[in-house]
Design a binder for these strands. Structure first.
Lengths: 205, 205
DNA sequence: GTCTATAACCGGATAGAC
DNA sequence: GTCTATCCGGTTATAGAC
């Protein structure tokens, strides 16, 4: 078993990620990040100069798993059937491992859209590919005549929304029980796949 | 034409709503709210004592249109067909008029779930009704055998998500064009209705 | 690189005149 | 009710010793 020495910089990033995700940039305190990392507050400035710069680093890091997941799926799967299935499976898995990422990204994106546009653009995910595949299958009367953009947004919405709205869903529909929420997410992969396929395929059992 | 005199209190509420929704409670500045309302900063404290109290007022006000819409739909429609249609229509209309409400609610709910649980509980929306209707229609083989909770979450997700993730959708899929986003939302009511019905009804054209 | 001490600033809240 | 002036606590950021 390899015992890795975690560098101070890594400790800071990990701690900052935790605090920023939980509190947002405005709610986060440098002191809290320092405590979480088990280091001195002024070290934060030594490594990252300012709160803003530290935040930028954490924020761009957050995109990585999302982009990775999407690209992985697009490389691996080509037809609409396995694309839907692959996308939902991998995306939900990624979200289970990073449940706070969506809210974090969405929040900071609404707060400060400009700051982030480049991040998105430079992430080089090509969503047109999937829209073309949908288009073609609509023309081939394999799929119902839905507009590809909406279908794409639907799939993402069905996956992401429960993680963004977790407190409402858990508190309001699931007896405020963490266990029930976990089960809900557990079931959900298969549910979304069935739901989407029922919706889009013209001939579906 | 009636010229209403807007009371200072109303001016404050309106300004606070705008700023809190845009910046969140932590990002908002009392000075900014005062400027927005065109009044002096200390008047905010005269009327509401503290930032927290002002926020609470704004936050509970934000629930009103949401709860109203849902209750309206549930009173008016009884069968699953018109419930889906009515819900999506009214909900999207309400969201178009209050596009920032979902993000606001979700954000503060993630940030501080405790503060708000009572608000939700006291809002007295009964979502069980719709779940029972779905259950019954599943048993009657009118609907595919989906779990009602998931179907309910799906419908809300499809309506709400575009408003929460607007910067991503607009910037990434719609050429960063406000006009295209408006059109997107325009089309979306009908799209969601068709999509959901295709998904849930066993016999669908 | 890491710490302590402190500067510099900001923002919510209050006092008090009008 | 509304304003000006001010206080005070907290937070980011820096200086400087080790």
């Amino acid at each position: 078993m390899v015992k890795k020495t975690v560098s101070t910089e890594e400790k800071i990033i990990a701690a900052a990620k935790k605090v920023f995700i939980l509190k947002g940039i405005d709610g986060a305190r440098m002191q809290e990040i320092a405590d979480e990392a088990g280091i001195n507050k002024s070290l934060l400035h030594y490594y990252f100069r300012s709160k803003d710069k530290l935040f930028d680093r954490v924020f761009s890091d957050s995109f990585i798993p999302v982009v990775k997941t999407i690209n992985l799926v697009f490389e691996k799967f080509q037809d609409i059937d396995s694309l839907v299935e692959g996308f939902v499976r991998h995306y939900i898995t990624m979200l289970r491992e990073n449940p706070y990422i969506p809210h974090f990204i969405i929040h900071e994106l609404n707060r400060n859209p400009d700051r982030i546009v480049e991040q998105i653009q430079s992430s080089s995910v090509n969503l047109n590919r999937i829209m073309e595949i949908i288009s073609k299958d609509v023309e081939g009367h394999k799929l119902r005549p839905f507009k590809p953009v909406h279908v794409l947004v639907n799939i993402v919405a069905l996956c992401v929304f429960p993680f963004v709205a977790r407190p409402i869903i858990q508190g309001f529909l699931l007896n405020d029980s963490e266990t029930e929420f976990r089960e809900f997410i557990e079931e959900r992969t298969q549910h979304i796949i069935s739901f989407v396929k029922s919706a889009i395929f013209i001939n579906h059992p």
